[in-house]
Amino acid sequence: MELIGRIFALAIATIFVHNFVLARFLGLCPYIGVSKKLDSALGMGMAVIFVMTLASTFTWLIQTFVLVPLGLEFLQTIAFILTIASLVQLVEMVIQKTAPALYKALGVYLPLITTNCAVLGVAILNINEELNFIGAILNGLFAGLGFTLVLVLMAGIRERLDKAEVPASMKGMPIAMIVAGSMALAFLGFSGLNI
């Protein structure tokens, strides 16, 4: 029971309280760039959840069983970004061969994910916060879910915003930033949660 409680607490903390986009400022480029249409936001979100979970798993293993025993912790940044880049490439090839339908839905988003700072961010955070193996995997999964949640919410708002009358100089990026600010304000309310 206690374990389930701890997993639940981690989920709430990562998805809402320390939301990757709105509280930690990670993954802003796709958050602003891929949030114009609801279905592309969903596709991007799914791809990010997938890659973040896998990246958390592999970077934790590499840190614990390769970098630390060899005393090469200073290579962390290089090792992690290479792991993520090759992982994304591998995932792309595997999905293309085994699940063409899924590849059609996620394919265009996968290459973009390598330079999504949320993925490298979660990998480094897992190590900094000294999470164990299961904790790291779950943290990656929940961080991806949190990212997808705000991305989809944002896309929903922006689809409506298209029909609203916005001052000409605020159209596009500026108003998207203001909307993001209001969302961050709403999410700030979660920081009162004591878990």
């Binding site: 509280a23 001052p167 100089s169 605020m170 990026m173 108003i175 600010g181 961050a184 700030l188």
Partner: peptide, 25 residues
């Protein structure tokens, strides 16, 4: 206080970008 919290970052950035567009037009 809100200006140094997370929402302030988005709001300041949004308004600055809007201002840039206004001067450019």
């Amino acid at each position: 206080l809100i200006a140094i919290l997370a929402p302030g970052a988005f709001l300041v950035m949004g308004l600055l970008m809007g201002l840039m567009n206004l001067t450019k037009r």
